[in-house]
Nucleic acid binder design. Structure first.
Lengths: 163, 163
DNA sequence: AATTTATGTCAGCCTTGTTGACATAAATGG
DNA sequence: CCATTTATGTCAACAAGGCTGACATAAATT
């Protein structure tokens, strides 16, 4: 009994050249996000904690709703890891000065130190990748990745990144 | 009581320019991997099934060990979703003709069709991102992503991608 | 014949995502 | 001022998909 493998050819790069970038994205991201795992393990934290402490550190005083909008997860999912980070002193909450329903989020010194340790190996990977490329290579990589973001999100993301 | 937010400044792009690419990778990948979710939901599958059916389709006759090496997960984790894909007829196993311990993996016609439906929205996103860039932009994006892969993996990945 | 290799499987645990329901305090609109 | 909306938190339960450890089988290799 023969397999039906010749009925339709499997996806090939020739017929679908986007496969190269699709797969490169997978492999690159796979290795990129594994960098901080060693550090995370020492702190008994996971990748979710990394994301939270990072974005809070990058946007001091951000609202919980802002963080949810970046991470695209539910408040219950966020709540769990956020609570752990607050209880262990990596993040603190401050009532919003104008709207006191808000709990503005700040990384503590401890939280900033953690974020820096987590970010360091990723930054090193980026530097190593950019080294052989020159400034135009960097610009091109940034431009491509920006265009990979949902159009409706692009301006918001651009503003958050530039500061 | 004052917060200690001024003890150390939060990470800023000025002091760490790699942050731009670090965060762009997060945002781009976040949206990129969410594309197939709509399709996956219809089939009662998750992102893990997507990855498995995709790489099996792309590398017909691959060994289980090869798949593990790509995904970088344990055989138990793979086993669970692979079994589901086999039981529902998206993937089939064939004993290795030379080494009969091996179970070579093939996507069935059904599996190939599924992979194509899953890949389509991602390919569309790639095409849309490349459209304003020109051929050099594509080359640059590929070059950057290749350099983001672990050096020890690069050649292997390059060979797998090119065919 | 003994060992190693490729694969599968059982059992249990952890992280991190989900839904749904409900609670509270503060802002806002009539 | 009261009703409603908003920002946030919380409880409970569940699901996906990682993980470890132990053990089983068949086939290849030494």
């Amino acid at each position: 009994m023969q397999r039906d493998e010749t009925v339709t050819p499997p996806l090939s790069i020739q017929q679908q050249p986007e496969l190269v970038l699709i797969e490169l994205l997978f492999y690159a991201y796979r290795d990129f996000v594994s960098d901080p795992d060693v550090v995370l393990a020492k702190f008994q934290f996971g990748r979710a904690h990394h994301r939270v402490v990072h974005f809070v550190n990058r946007h001091p005083g951000m609202r919980v709703a802002d963080l949810l909008d970046i991470l695209k997860i539910t408040k219950q999912s966020l709540g769990r890891v956020l609570k752990q980070l607050i209880d262990t002193g990596y993040i603190e909450q401050v009532p919003g000065p104008v709207d006191r329903r808000q709990r503005l989020l700040y990384a503590t010194a401890k939280g900033r130190a953690l974020d820096q340790r987590l970010t360091e190996p990723q930054a090193e990977r980026i530097r190593a990748a950019l080294a052989p490329l020159g400034p135009e290579g960097r610009i091109a990589a940034e431009r491509f990745l920006r265009l990979m973001i949902d159009p409706a999100e692009r301006d918001k993301v651009a503003q958050m990144i530039e500061h």
